[in-house]
Amino acid sequence: MELKLTNFVKQYAIIIVLIALIAVFSILSPAFSTINNAMNIIRQISVMGIVAVGFTFVLIGGGLDLSVGSQIAIMNVSVALMIVEHGVNPILAVIIGIVMTTVIGFFNGYMITKTGIPPLIATLAMMTALRGVTFIMSKGYPIYGIPDYLKVIGQGNIYKIPVQGIIMAGIIVLGIILLNKTYIGRHFYALGSNTEATRLAGINIHFTRTTTYTLLGFLTGIAGLVMLTRVGSGQPNIANGFELNVLTAAVLGGVSVNGGKGNIPGAIVGTAIIGVLNNGMSIIGANDYWQKVITGIVLFVVVVFDSISQSKRKA
């Protein structure tokens, strides 16, 4: 029972942090607590939220993927190039782009599980190489010319609600169902908690691990589409450092970097905290650099709090 209570407090502590932040910014600036600004925040966090769902799969499975930012960049530049320079049907180009990131995710997972390279190193290599290829392809310049009907995805609204927010919500729901209602979701937790015991339970760990990365690749492709249509051009430099923001969001939300622990709602609350911080700080006119300082401090405090509450339980 006692354990349940601490879990309860922990689960809600992060929501309390979010509410406290919203309250503080609302007091500091009346412009913050408007419906319009709430929609703004949703626009700002959708890309991160979509990737965070896939990132949660990978982290729970005991992995890590630093290449998501580069995946978005290469997807954006390739799709833009296909449309603008090669006259490919834009819808087809987008599909190819999403297939591409899915394959990259599959490749990440397959390499990691078959060779045993640490995920940090494997995906660091992927991140660096993909970014290089992106710059070579674009020669360092942004590529303009995304058709307007695609831009609806990244810029349009349905009843004042951003389309990208609706996409994010759908993916969150599907992600929660996959993780909690299907055997494959349960296998993710088992894999990340104890790989060898999972293998000895007769579960194909290579398939399970590869699936986490492949799903992340696919969701990164969707997020890439949102990014491309929001920005309206293929930017080789886009989403630089994005992977660490997603990691921060997930860890804030209680997803363990050691695998086996965490859930999607947590990761999304973590994403929202970062979104509110960034949005609120710029509304009250704080310097960009201060946003980073505050994000770092919040991450530190949350992790320390978590660590203390765990070691207390042990003693």
Partner: peptide, 15 residues
């Protein structure tokens, strides 16, 4: 190798 200590009993049994 036998159990996954950090997961619940029922999850372990039906793995």
């Amino acid at each position: 190798h036998g159990v996954i200590l950090s997961l619940p009993i029922n999850w372990n049994i039906t793995l």
